[in-house]
Design a protein around this nucleic acid. Sequence first.
RNA 1: GGAGAGAUGGCUGAGUGGUUGAAGGCGCCCGCCUCGAAAGCGGGUAGGGGUUUACGCCCCUCGCGAGUUCGAAUCUCGCUCUCUCCGCCA
Length: 423
Amino acid sequence: MLDLKLIRTNPDQVRTGLAKRGAEGLVDELLRLDRERRENLTKVEALKNKRNVVSKEVGRLKAAKVDATNLINEMKEVNEEIKRLDEVVRTLEEEINRILYTLPNLPQEDVPVGSDDQTNVEIRRWGTPRTFGFEPKPHWELGEELEILDFERGAKISGARFTVLKGLGARLERALVNFMLDLHINKHGYTEIFPPFLVNRDCMVGTGQLPKFEEDMFKVTTGDYYLIPTAEVPVTNLHREEILEAASLPKKYVAYTACFRAEAGSAGRDTRGLIRQHQFNKVELVKLTTPEDSYREHESLVHDAEEVLQLLNLPYRVMLLSSGDMGFSASKCYDLEVWLPSFGVYREISSCSNFEAFQARRANLRFRREPDAKPEFVHTLNGSGLAVGRTLAAIIENYQQADGSVAIPEVLVPYMGGITVIK
RNA sequence: GGAGAGAUGGCUGAGUGGUUGAAGGCGCCCGCCUCGAAAGCGGGUAGGGGUUUACGCCCCUCGCGAGUUCGAAUCUCGCUCUCUCCGCCA
C-alpha cells in the first residue's frame, strides 16, 4: 500500500502516479478522512490523558482515606465521550485502510505510460526462432501423441484447465524443477525454501492479492486458508512483522511450489494446452533488499531468470511493461517471453517485479541500518525463474522433430537419467 | 478429537487492581579505568501513532479481541498459537 504520509505531504505526486495506472480520484477523499481522523484523535487523546492523570489522583486520595466520589463520577462522563470518539476514529481508520488497500503501487519514473500491453517496450531479444523443415505442431498435439500429456483425464479427474503428466512428461517436469533450483541455488546464490501451499489471509493481504482480487484465488472451505497463486506469497511473507538487520540483506530465496489460480475472467482464453492452468508448477525467486539496492537487484534478478532460458536454448525477449499492464503491487516489471512456434508468437514465461516498499508496508516487513537506528521498510522483489508448465510447453514445441519426437535440451539430460529424446 | 500447562521488552525472568511501559539478570551501545583487553564503575538501550521549527509533550501496545473498574500485565469471557500426555493419521 501507499504511504499515507506521502499522500498527505505530496498529494500531487500520488495523483500523477495513480493517473498513469488509471486509478485516480480517491486522493482527495483520503486527505479529508485523514484530516478528520487526526482531529478526532487529538481530542480523544487529550481526554485519555485527563483520565490517566485523574485516576492516579484517585489512587492517592484513596490511599489517604479521602473521599473521591466527585472525581470518579466526573470520569464516568469523560469515559462516555472517550468511547464515542474512539469509535469515530476507528471508523475513519477503517475507511482509510479500505481505500489504501485497494490503491495500486505508483510506477517508477522510467516505466512507459500506457493503458495496456500495446505500450510495452521490448528491451532485448535473445536467440533466433528455429526454422522448421515441416509444419511445427502445438505442444498439446505432440504431448498427446507421445502420451506424456493427458488433457482428457485431467478434465475427468478434476476439470477444465487441469492436466495429467505421464511417464517422461512427468519426468521432464521434475527435471526442469530440479535444474532451475540447482541453477539458482548453486550459481546465483539463492537459499532454497519449501513453503506451505496454503497460507492465511494476512499473507494474501501482505503481498497484495487481497482484498482486491479475491475472485482470482482458491480458498478452502475448512479453515481460513487460501491456496497460494504463487510462491511469492509465502516466501515474501516469511519475514512479515520482523525487523531484519541490514547486514542480512539482500535476502535471496528460491522456492519451488505448485500454484493455484481461479482464472476468473479468463474464460475461453488459452483453453488448449498447458498455458493457462488452475494448477501449475513454478520456481520463484524472491529478494528482500534495502531501498537503495533494489533497482540493481531487480536487474540482476531478471538476468538470473533469463539464464534459465539461455541454458535451455529457448529464444526469448525481455519486455518492460507499461504502467497499465503491470500487476497491482508492482512499481516496475519486466516480462520474459518465450518463443512458441505453434503460436508464432512470444508468450510470457516469467514476470520480474520490484515492489519497492508497497508489500513491505502491508506486511510490516522492516530492517534496521544500525543497531539503534529507526526501522525502515525493505524493498521486495520477485520473479518467476521460471513457470515450469510453460517451459515444458516451450521445450516440447521448440525441440520437436519431424517424426513427432522431442529432443531433450542438453542441460536436462543428466536430470533425465541420460535420456536424450522422448519418442 | 480428549486432558492439562503456558504466552511479559533482543534474550532470560519478576510481577494477582493504583506513578509498572514494566524489577533483576544477560546481551548491545557510550563513557571512566587500562599500554591494550578483561573485570569493575557510571549512563543508555521496544514498537506504532498524534503534536511541535525544535527540545519535548501526549496516546496506544505485557499473544489477539471483547468486558468489569475512576484505574487492568494483574479480574471475567471468547479466540489464536506453543508445549506435554492420550487417541487418530502420512
